[in-house]
Design a protein around this nucleic acid. Structure first.
Lengths: 221, 221
DNA sequence: ACAGTGGTTACGGAAATCCGTAATGTCTTT
DNA sequence: AAAGACATTACGGATTTCCGTAACCACTGT
């Protein structure tokens, strides 16, 4: 089990709940912060002191208040931590269940676990911690279909960009021209058509209108 | 002419351009901010000091940065200002040309003018100011059809049904066939096309995809 | 080196859309 | 009954999307 863990969570009650859980798991040194910026500073400091944190459990959304923050969200924090402290284990503990966000966190920012706050949130969090201790990753069942669900739902940023531009009213040809101008790689009309066709199949959409309606409902864009 | 005016605009160059224009119009006391929150604070302060601003010229979209904001957009700011300082004149100066947004600003938040940033943006802004000085309202020609066009903002159940079927992936021909079967009156493909065209114009949509995206955002479907 | 794989691009035809014009129908007004 | 206003429908052509096929290129591996 880990010895030194940090909790970043703005809601005091939840913060306290997680703290209790960690104590029950036998973690000796637990610190808590209510701002992402404070989390970063504490981790930085601990690194300089040669007594680094082994793991952080962080929320995604922190309500904004008077204090302006360099890292306003857990996502921003995760990105920074992955770049600067790649060995630090990161567990995200959030109500968010947007699959694309989860995918980005795993693929881009290499977090180790994603746990949804829900009825059985703490139970899943326990599972997540034991998995991460053993060097594995963990994904809450609520969002498990973000990856190994039925289909290989590989929706990357390019796809999102495509869908966003479509929903903004650009024709496929206009998107092609735009991508050529700003040097986004598959830029040909043909490639865009092909990619959209793939997305239509993945989302069971009859046509582009249907596709955009679906992904808007899913919150992907 | 007004004596004391505030400019809220995050792009420094534009901010400066508007400032110059106001000086040319003979406005003596001009202040500038790059965040909506600062605008609110300045207006609040001036009110408490019994030297209130007479007018604010504000953008709609402010790019987000590290500073967390209570009023992230000009829309949020306008709403607050209308509630707290109803006598303050508000001119919105934005690239946005979404008619529904303009309508909301006028009807809900009672702004005094809406000017589109465009080739002739500053010219229209001048007009807007003189109109507002005289107690009138002003609307950029680009969005003038938000109101005193036919102003047939009559979106009826038929329109909604059309948009819903579109978003469910039916082609216009399929919708036509469906309406013929269940005896919904304008059922011909031609009528459906015409109606959708009217909706596209009303919502400033480039195509059907764009239209569905817009009305989904508006919560119409 | 050579086949195999996967990603990008090109092309062409069918289908659907976009958009203007015009014909038909329906209802009201006089 | 005639005329006018307005909604519905019909039609034609330009554009766009949809979809299959295929060429081209980079990269991989026994």
């Amino acid at each position: 089990m880990f010895k030194k863990v940090l909790i970043a969570e703005d809601m005091e009650d939840i913060n306290k709940g997680v703290h209790t859980l960690l104590k029950e798991l036998g973690i000796l040194h637990i610190e808590q912060v209510q701002y992402c910026d404070d989390a970063y500073l504490k981790i930085k400091r601990a690194g300089l002191d040669n007594d680094p944190f082994e793991m952080i459990i962080t929320d995604l959304s922190f309500k904004a208040d008077h204090r302006s923050q360099t890292y306003p969200t857990g996502q921003a924090l995760a990105e920074k931590l992955n770049a600067e402290f790649p060995e630090l284990k990161v567990i995200v503990y959030s109500v968010e269940d947007r699959l694309q966000a989860v995918r980005t966190l795993f693929n881009q920012h290499h977090i180790d676990a994603y746990v949804c706050k829900s009825r059985s949130g703490l139970k899943n969090l326990t599972k997540a911690i034991t998995e991460v201790v053993n060097g594995n990753t963990f994904l809450s069942p609520e969002v498990s279909n973000a990856f190994h669900s039925t289909n290989e739902l590989e929706i990357d940023d390019y796809d999102i960009s495509l869908l966003e531009n479509l929903s903004k009213g650009l024709s496929q040809e206009e998107i092609s021209a735009l991508y050529k101008k700003v040097n986004i790689s598959p830029a040909s009309l043909s490639s865009i058509e092909k990619r959209l066709n793939k997305l239509r199949i993945q989302f069971n959409a009859n046509n582009a209108i249907h596709l955009v309606a679906i992904v808007k409902d899913l919150g992907l864009i």
